[in-house]
Write a protein that binds this DNA or RNA. Structure first.
Lengths: 141, 141
DNA sequence: GTAATTGCAAATACTTTGCCACGTA
DNA sequence: TACGTGGCAAAGTATTTGCAATTAC
């Protein structure tokens, strides 16, 4: 089984969260997803649908976010998107404004230098960034 | 008076919108703002508060967005942020997760090359991007 | 005159919370 | 046992729409 899941659950334990079935399934679901997911998607997903209530998923995401294990993204839609933060991983996204498809971009992220520069010049702490490209995919054009 | 305002109103006219007081004030307000604004901020702003209803501002923003004159951004908060699109202008933002302050970044945007690359490789049309940096500002730290 | 625009109120959509029962450590 | 967690239902916040009245062209 995926060692990253174990690792992530461990991080949760260290953050003081209890190891519940719902927590494990949530992490598993988020990790398997190639892209960020909304609360509704998560709560309705195969793994979580009959596992727990939407409020539970909401509160889990809240806790994970507070502890820096997950992050809440904007991604333009009405609903918030969530993604797990895996040390050493970072993704920018390409989003179709027609069909709403979201995919992670493989190319190396070109903004780390600017990020460093901003950190130095402004004194901001805990800096991170979000980069999304929007457009109309070939199918929708 | 600011020629960009006239120019923008003109673009609206060409898009088929009628020249109303509310439209002008909305454009004026958005252009004067150094950062994107929410519907609530706009509808409650000095210029628009007693000029028109929030629903009107909402629909104006909707039309402007449809015609590519304004754009709806994510910016992480619960409410959507709007900004006018002025030809030749582009901004990335630095946002404090503590106090919520938003400021435009002056440094040149480092992602245009990647944007071109994505356009070529994926065949996406009307590509544009959004880049935001999040962190805790010196005051909040 | 005609079609776009507006105000007001009502309907949605998604998120967030209260409260008490339950399960993990 | 104690405190984090979970379910269910209700409340909150921001967005979106219906419709009749109004206004720009």
């Amino acid at each position: 089984m995926n060692p990253i899941i174990q690792e992530t659950v461990e991080r949760c334990r260290k953050a003081g969260l209890r190891r519940t079935k719902a927590l494990e399934e949530l992490i598993r679901t988020l990790l398997e997803s190639a892209r960020p997911m909304t609360l509704a998607e998560l709560a309705g997903s195969e793994r979580l649908a009959d596992q727990c209530d939407k409020a539970t998923v909401f509160r889990l995401l809240q806790r994970l976010t507070e502890h820096g294990i997950a992050r809440r993204l904007g991604l333009h839609e009405r609903a918030a998107y969530f993604t797990l933060l895996v040390p050493g991983r970072h993704s920018d996204y390409l989003i179709c404004t027609g069909c709403g498809s979201i995919e992670a971009i493989k190319a190396p992220c070109p903004v780390h230098e600017l990020e460093d520069e901003i950190r130095e010049k402004t004194g901001f702490r805990n800096l991170y960034h979000e980069l999304e490209f929007f457009g109309v995919c070939p199918k929708c054009a």
